[in-house]
Computed example of a mutant assay.
Amino acid sequence: MTKLLSVTLSTLALVCASLIFSGSTQAQADQQIKTEIQKKLGTNAKVRSVTPAPVSGLYEVLVGNDIFYTDASAKYLIQGEIIELTSGKNITEQRQADLNRIKWTDLNSANAFKTVRGNGTRQLAIFSDPNCGYCKRLEKSLQQLDNVTIYTYLIPILSADSIQKAKQIWCSADPNKTYIDWMVNGVAPSGKSDCSNPLDKNLTFAKTYGITGTPTLFFTDGSRFPGAVQVTDIEKKFASLK
């Protein structure tokens, strides 16, 4: 019995050592590919990681938040999507969604103004620039939503005038009304712009989480929708969260 136990433990030790060696070898291969890809891309693009892709012989290359693929020799850079034919699952799209996901609790509601309609049970966060045409289109569409709480985070990234308008909106007596008056009704904000505001904090958050365009929407599961999303798509997302 003692001899059998000894043999079993020895076998387990060999298996563990083999797994550690295999993992180390894979990590070295990934690093070599990453180094080679970075060398070829130069300093204009930052390669965040290189990991084996779901398809044998391919590697996922993460540049910023964008997904590419390469071969083991780092000779080719492939731009496109991997789709599993048996299930129809878009593996690249799912991976991209996971990369773009945040924790809802990372959002600080004190840095946003809040709109509540109906019972307010459904929650949505929007990063917006007051001079963004797509943001204005989205806001007009959002007027159709009911039973929702919307947190609007101003990130003035388009121009100096965006900064001025964002400050005037935040400093107004009713930021939400002033924002909607401008975005939906075309009534420009006026008044003071020298109050304490969260704009710098919002811009820092946007940079940290790769929010490079407006509008950008987030749902309570952390998923991200960029652009002027259709209300029907927002409703579908809300339905999936139940």
Rank of each mutant, 00 (worst) to 15 (best):
K89M: 09
Y69P: 00
S10A: 15
G213H: 07
A72T: 13
S56P: 02
L9D: 08
A17M: 15
Q96S: 09
S190V: 14
L9T: 13
P226F: 08
G186F: 11
T152D: 01
I155V: 14
R101W: 07
D174R: 05
N65I: 06
E36S: 14
F68E: 01
K192C: 09
Q144Y: 08
Q123D: 01
S56N: 15
A53P: 02
L203S: 11
A112E: 00
S24G: 11
G118T: 07
V231A: 08
I83W: 09
Q26S: 14
F205T: 05
G222H: 07
L241A: 12
S162E: 03
Q143P: 00
S162N: 03
K46V: 11
T220M: 06
E81G: 04
G57F: 13
Q143K: 10
T35L: 15
C135F: 04
R137H: 07
I150L: 04
L4I: 15
V184E: 03
K40L: 11
N100W: 07
I163E: 01
T214Q: 03
N108T: 08
Q143C: 03
S6H: 13
N197M: 09
V148M: 04
S159M: 09
L154P: 00
F218C: 01
Q26C: 10
Q94I: 11
Q230A: 15
I126D: 00
F238K: 06
L19A: 15
M1Y: 13
F21R: 13
V7S: 08
I83G: 02
T115C: 01
D106Q: 10
N90A: 06
S190D: 11
I163D: 00
T8P: 03
A112M: 02
T149I: 06
K46P: 01
N176P: 01
D174G: 05
R48F: 12
L5K: 14
T220I: 13
N65A: 09
S193M: 13
S141T: 08
S159V: 04
W170E: 01
N147I: 05
I150Y: 00
K201R: 11
L14Y: 13
L199W: 09
D129E: 08
S141Q: 10
P52S: 13
I211V: 12
Q94D: 13
V229A: 10
L77I: 14
V229N: 02
S172W: 04
V231G: 05
R101M: 03
T8A: 15
S87M: 08
T25L: 15
N202I: 05
A110L: 07
I78T: 07
Q96T: 09
L5G: 12
Y209V: 05
G213W: 03
A29V: 14
